[in-house]
Design a protein around this nucleic acid. Structure first.
Lengths: 123, 123
DNA sequence: CAGGATCCTATCCGATACTG
DNA sequence: CAGTATCGGATAGGATCCTG
């Protein structure tokens, strides 16, 4: 993004000026609202799931994208990864406390959308 | 996505089985959580804005993507577009009632993320 | 001012093959 | 089982030019 001369406007009173620049929250938001991230977080709300359970639960996701998404969410501190050193290995994913907070917001967002879509039509 | 043999499992008790298939909500969610869509919706919460105001407010967005994002959100019934037939023309964008609902959810999501990022560190 | 049209590049993402 | 590595097509997205 190469912003050197980008000034952060804090004079207007809008609290969103800051985030519109390159603040770290923007990356996190992008991860959370990524194509598959949102469904991973929602899927894990009920209970922890293993890798293949997530893959079957989230229709349409490829192994590559699921792995990639999970890695990002683990790095961000939203998802916890638990490895059981058996043979074959068992890896379980669950939400951290932070992940639960975010999952709650995402579920609310999703619910509002489905609710609206179930109505006839309105502007 | 070409799913013909895809069964909707309604027997498990999880209310998210349905949405993991190709339900229309998924498209809407993708639009709302698109790279720029989320910032448009948040930006318009306070007050209506004109095109160039949005462009300046949302740092990093190109004219093309802003226009494209706005068109999608208008089609989805989240944003209202008002044209003042002057010369030069003035176009103002604002949220519909539905847009306000969604914007509220997105703001909550965003607030939780920024709040967490402002803390030292935790898992 | 508010975009549409065009071009071109970065990246996303799926398919496939392979590994501990 | 739970991934990683690589490849290639699709698409998102930026830059530029142009119009009502």
């Amino acid at each position: 993004m190469t912003e050197g001369s980008q000034r952060i406007r804090v004079t207007t009173g809008s609290r969103y000026d800051v985030l519109h620049t390159d603040c770290p929250a923007r990356d996190m938001v992008d991860h959370v609202t990524s194509r598959w991230g949102i469904w991973v977080l929602i899927s894990l709300r009920g209970n922890d799931l293993r890798y293949y359970e997530l893959r079957e639960s989230i229709q349409g996701v490829s192994e590559k994208m699921l792995a990639q998404t999970l890695r990002t969410l683990v790095d961000d501190g939203l998802v916890r990864r638990h490895v059981e050193p058996t043979m074959p290995p068992q890896v379980t994913y669950g939400l951290t406390e932070f992940g639960h907070e975010i999952g709650e917001s995402l579920t609310e967002l999703f619910d509002r959308i489905t609710q609206r879509l179930s109505l006839p039509a309105a502007s």
